[in-house]
Nucleic acid binder design. Structure first.
Length: 488
RNA sequence: GCAGGUGUAGUGUAGUCUGGUCUAGCACGAGAGCCUUCCAAGCUUUCAACCCGGGUCCAAAUCCCGGCACCUGCACCA
């Protein structure tokens, strides 16, 4: 495969993904829609494996899962603050056509007021005589810019949820009951979120519809250190003042870089998750939000960021939402959402962008061999196809024997893959590019002695003479000690 | 959303300036077959594209207009 010159990591991943079936732009036969992408056959499997590992991590510390609708009534998102905060008033310059947020223009003039509607914004702009900050031209009439997708049905207004979190908050009472009234309570939800991005770009990085994995950790607000980090691995931490620290999470708490032990613990869990699915730890850092960039519901937030080429992309935000959401829903619904005696639980929220994690996994795994071919070094439990069965050649009954063995292997590993086309080298290369960790080759020894050859993806080394019946005694397939032997 | 650039098979590209020999070339890929006792080898053969819609013209991949998408920068990213 020839490559265009100066292809960035991102371009390269987009190219491989489309060609090999990880993901591609949606609706492309109609010209495509920016910010919407399809997962292909391999991507769908890999995405599932990412979710699977994520659930394992949070269920292993007692988390429980729920699944709530995307379509959300306006009252819920009004209470959560999204209806007011996710609609921006914007204004355009008549001369240079630049667009600005009214809110930021006002705050530049020292007016810390968020106008309620178009009229109020228009009057303020005229009163203060705000001009275009770029060219000094006359500003036009303000307009609303919706960052949520509205749905109107039978006179009722709904929105597609901008985060899955609200589905957890509104279920707090039922969940707490399920949890037999006890805190801490960890609830997680996977699902789609929707944001009307102004300029979606870069494949899966900024989309209008995206996969999220959100965890809401409910804590007693008066108890610190329900969860404590214990990792001594040094990580890169960029605090809100822009200062870079190289500290373990344990030390970061001791030195006050991270203000809460519970918060730090979920930074640790987040990092664990990222590394567990195969993201390169050297490309990760935590960055604390500045006060002025915090979301309306957040009082402190650390993002896990992943480096692509030379820029950093948020893959998970670990936010301290305090009692913001439960408080608002309690007020708005009239329901008592306290866990005891009128006290509201404090919430820590690790919210992962699964699509971005997915990209990070692919980018971390992609390596170029000396011969110029690609190798996708996915961890073996992450690879879409854990194993491929390949006859050395088609003739002399090798094909028939291989199919026979393949059907046995597929009994316990349904995602096993069979390929007999062309030459063996080409088939190895094909499997390398999609990250299949092991190939089982059926050769002439198989016909005579019922033994196969196992070939390891990363080293390309093989062990010969493995009785194939031994491969069939271990389920799940990848725990087979025979496979470990070839991988040192 | 703004400015600039770009849009040709599954992928990467040639051709576009200077309209006609382009029934659109090449490479990779994919399929069928041959060969081959282990790393995209070789041979035969097949598949598959001018982003969409208008216009100009005898004639449009090529020129013009509109739309859509992508890239880079700015803004946005709650």
């Amino acid at each position: 495969m020839r490559k265009g010159k100066n292809m960035g990591e991102l371009d390269e991943i987009l190219e491989i993904s489309k060609r090999r079936g990880f993901f591609w732009p949606s609706f492309s036969i109609y010209g495509g829609v920016a910010g919407l992408n399809d997962y292909g056959p391999l991507g769908s499997i890999l995405k599932d494996r990412i979710y699977h590992e994520w659930k394992r991590i949070y269920s292993s510390i007692g988390g429980i899962e729920i699944d709530t609708p995307s379509v959300t009534p306006e009252t819920v998102l009004k209470a959560s603050g999204h209806v007011d905060r996710f609609i921006d008033l914007a204004v355009g310059c008549n001369t240079c056509k630049s667009k600005f947020k009214v809110e930021s223009l006002l705050s530049d003039k020292g007016v810390e007021k968020v106008p309620e509607n178009v009229e109020e914004a228009w009057n303020l702009i005229k009163d203060i005589e705000i001009k275009c900050p770029r060219c000094g031209g006359q500003l036009g009439e303000p307009f609303e810019f919706h960052l949520m997708f509205p749905i109107d049905s039978n006179g009722e207004r709904y929105y597609l949820r901008p985060e899955t979190a609200q589905g957890i908050f509104v279920n707090f009472k039922l969940l707490l009951n399920f949890n037999r009234g006890k805190l801490p309570m960890i609830v997680y939800q996977q699902g789609k979120g929707y944001r009307n991005e102004i300029s979606p770009r870069q494949g899966l990085i900024r989309q209008k519809e995206f996969n999220m994995g959100e965890v809401e950790v409910f804590l007693d607000p008066d108890v610190n250190g329900t969860f404590r980090p214990d990792s001594t691995e040094k990580l890169t931490l960029l605090d809100r003042e822009g200062k870079i620290h190289r500290e373990s999470l344990v030390d970061a708490v001791n030195k006050g870089i991270i203000q809460s032990e519970d918060h730090a613990y979920f930074l640790q869990k987040t990092f664990e998750f990222a590394v567990r699915i195969g993201i390169d730890r050297e490309r990760l850092r935590f960055r604390q939000h500045r006060k002025d960039e915090l979301a309306h519901y957040s009082r402190d937030c650390w993002d896990l960021e992943f480096r692509i080429d030379s820029s950093w992309v948020e893959v998970t935000g670990i936010s301290d939402r305090g009692t913001f959401d439960l408080g608002n829903h309690q007020k708005s619904s009239g329901e008592n959402l306290a866990f005891e005696n009128g006290r509201l639980a404090r919430v820590i929220e690790p919210a992962s962008g699964i699509d971005r994690m997915f990209m990070a996994v692919l980018i971390s795994s992609m390596v170029k061999r000396e011969n110029g071919y690609n190798n996708m070094k996915l961890l073996e439990y992450m690879a879409p196809y854990p194993v491929a069965v390949l006859p050395l050649q088609k003739k002399d009954g090798l094909s028939e024997k291989a199919k026979e063995i393949f059907s046995m292997i597929r009994e316990m590993e349904p995602y096993a893959y069979y390929d007999e086309s062309g030459t063996i080298g080409r088939r190895y290369a094909r499997q390398d590019e999609i990250g299949t960790p092991y190939c089982i080759t059926i050769d002439y020894d198989t016909l005579e002695k019922d033994v196969v050859t196992i070939r390891d993806r990363d080293s390309t080394e093989q062990i010969t003479g493995v009785p194939y019946k031994d491969l069939l005694t271990h389920s799940p397939f990848l725990t087979n000690p025979i496979l470990k032997k070839v991988r040192k």
